[in-house]
Design a protein around this nucleic acid. Sequence first.
DNA 1: AAAATAGTATGAGATTTCTCACATAAATAT
DNA 2: ATATTTATGTGAGAAATCTCATACTATTTT
Lengths: 221, 221
Amino acid sequence: MEYIRSQNSLDEYFKNTQFKDYFGFDIQPYTSIVRFDPDDIILEEGDRPGRLYYMFSGRAKLLITHKNGTVSLINFLEAPCFIGEMELLDRDKPAYGVTAISTCLCFSIDIAACRSKLLNDVTFLQHLCYFLSDKALGDAYNYSKNQSYPLKVKLASFILLTENNGLYRERHAEAAGFLGVTYRHLLYVLAEFVKDGILRKTPAGYKIVELEQLKELAELE
Amino acid sequence: MEYIRSQNSLDEYFKNTQFKDYFGFDIQPYTSIVRFDPDDIILEEGDRPGRLYYMFSGRAKLLITHKNGTVSLINFLEAPCFIGEMELLDRDKPAYGVTAISTCLCFSIDIAACRSKLLNDVTFLQHLCYFLSDKALGDAYNYSKNQSYPLKVKLASFILLTENNGLYRERHAEAAGFLGVTYRHLLYVLAEFVKDGILRKTPAGYKIVELEQLKELAELE
DNA sequence: AAAATAGTATGAGATTTCTCACATAAATAT
DNA sequence: ATATTTATGTGAGAAATCTCATACTATTTT
C-alpha cells in the first residue's frame, strides 16, 4: 500500500468523483488517497483497521478464514464501493478480509478522527444504506443467475474478474471453492482452455491468449 | 394482509422486540402491525408502497420479473429484517417484489408520515446499515458454501425454507431457476424423495412425511 | 367447445462433474 | 538436508445433471 501524497492529485480526485457529495460535512480534511497493488491486503481479518475506504477504482476480493484454517473466497468488490463499513458501525472486528485484485485506488478516511461525525451524518448514512441495499440486490441477482451455467462459462467470468495484466493466478483450491466445483474438475476445464489455446501456462500463471474467446464464453451467462 | 388492531397486542409486541430501540424517536405513533398470510404480496414490484416493514416473525421471498415476463426467485428474507428500505431511501420504485412464504408479522411504518424523521434519524440509519451489511455478508457466505452440494441436499434446504404447514408447493420452474438446475432434474430428485418416502404427492402439493430425513439432508451443507 | 397456454411429467442418451487413487513439484519446518 | 506439508497434476469409472423429445393435465382465451 502506498499513500498518494501530492495535494494536487487529492484535489483532482475530489473534483472528479462524487465522493464528497456522500457527506454532509467537509470530508476532505479526514481523507487521504491510498493505492493498493495487486495482492495487497486492504482489510486484515480480525484487525481493527481504523479506516473506512471508498474504492473509486479497482477490484478486490472478500475472504473468510474458517476455524480449520482454510480460506474461502466469498465475494468480489468492485469500484465504486465502500470497504470496512462494518468496523465503523462498530461491533467487533471484521470477520473477513479484503485483498486487492487489481491496483485499487481508495479514499481512506481516518475513522478515529471523525467517527462520531460520520455516525451522525445522515447524508453519509443514507448513501451507505443505499450502496449496501443496492449491492445486496445485485449480488443476489447475480448469484441466482450465475449458478446455472457449466463451469466453462463460470470459469471464463471468474478469470476475467480475477485476472491482472492478462495473467490468471488464483489458488486452485480457492477458485474451486468459490465456483462450487471440485478441484479436479477445475483443473480439467483449465486444461481444456489451454488445449483450446485460450490460456497458456507459464511459470508466472495462466496467460490469457484469447481474451475475446473468454469474453464470449463469459457473456453467455 | 390484515391489520392487527388491538392496542394491547401492539403494546405487547413493542415490549417484546427491540424494534423501538432501532429509532432515535418514538416510532410507535407511526407504526401498526400487519399480518401477511402465505402467498400474500408484501411488496408489489413496480409499486410505491409507502410502507417500511420490519418483519419480526415469518419468512418471505424476493422475486424479480424479467423483461420477457418470467419471474425469478432471487433470495429469501427471514425475520427479523427490514423490507422496503429502498423505497424509503428513494430512487424509483422497487425493482423487485416480496411475497410471504409463511405467516409474516410485521411492524408497518407509514413512510409518508415520518419519512423525513426516518431519513434524519442516525440511530435508525445506523441500524439499517448494520442489518444490510450483515445480511450481505451472510448471503455471500451462504451462497458460496451452498453451491457445492448435490441437488438432493440443496433441495432439502429449499423445501424446508419454502414449506408451509408441512406442504411444499413451489412452482417447479421457479425452484429450478433458483437452485440452478434444470426443470427435468428437479423433477427427477423430487420423484426420488417421493420414492424414498420423504415426500408424498397430494393434490394440494408435496406433503412432508419425513421431516427428520429432510433436515438431516439439509444439515449436510 | 375448441384452441392456445402454462404447468406437470417421464424416458433415454449425452455431457458435466465427482470420487478416489495416486504422482510430482514447491514451500516450510525440523 | 531432510522430513513434512501444501499445491499442482492426471487417469478412470461412477454419479449427477443436461438436452431433447414427447405426453398429459389444467387453466385461460377466443
